[in-house]
Write a protein that binds this DNA or RNA. Structure first.
Length: 161
DNA sequence: GCCAACGTTGGC
DNA sequence: GCCAACGTTGGC
């Protein structure tokens, strides 16, 4: 075991700003990332994320899609409570408390950008970001995806000053 | 609002 | 296990 601790990992998490924006996160401070119903995205949260990991907060399905700020993983993974809630749109009749299907982490606000790193700008750096950057991979719709250290550095350097 | 791309469901 | 039908995502 390293005495310097485990290296942080980095992620990108999408949210529709009409549903939950970076400003909403700033207001509440920490938010359980409910509603992920894709197995690959779930697996990243359940198996990959650790408290303190960096998160790029991405706004999707809006006028200017892009990265609007930074957040961090604020808990380890635990069952998404909405899967058990009959009144929730995320209710899953096949999930049980003994065998939950959907896991989430809490996400904490770090800071918002003065202006977004737009999807358009990100596409412009596609070559530097590389083939394994799932955000701009053709057909990829993952709402939670890994970002490597080099990509994290590139994307943060793109923040408009 | 359109629609391409993708994931899931369920009949067979 | 195949695959058609359906639902969802998300850019435009």
């Amino acid at each position: 075991m390293s005495t310097t601790g485990m290296r942080r990992r980095y992620w990108l998490m999408k949210s529709e700003p009409e549903d939950f924006s970076i400003d909403d996160l700033e207001r509440v401070g920490t938010e359980p990332w409910t509603g992920v119903r894709n197995y690959q995205a779930r697996n990243f949260m359940r198996d990959g994320m650790r408290r303190g990991d960096g998160v790029l907060f991405y706004h999707s399905n809006c006028a200017v899609p892009g990265i609007y700020g930074i957040a961090e993983v604020a808990s380890s993974a635990y069952p998404d409570p909405t899967q058990f809630d009959r009144t929730s749109k995320y209710f899953d009749p096949k999930a049980t408390r003994e065998e939950p299907r959907w896991m989430l982490v809490d996400v904490g606000f770090v800071r918002s950008f003065a202006a977004p790193v737009t999807l358009e700008a990100i596409r412009g750096r596609a070559e530097a970001l590389g083939e394994d950057f799932a955000l701009i991979r053709k057909g990829s719709r993952l709402s939670v995806l890994p970002v490597n250290a080099a990509q994290w550095k590139i994307l943060l350097a793109m923040e408009p000053k």
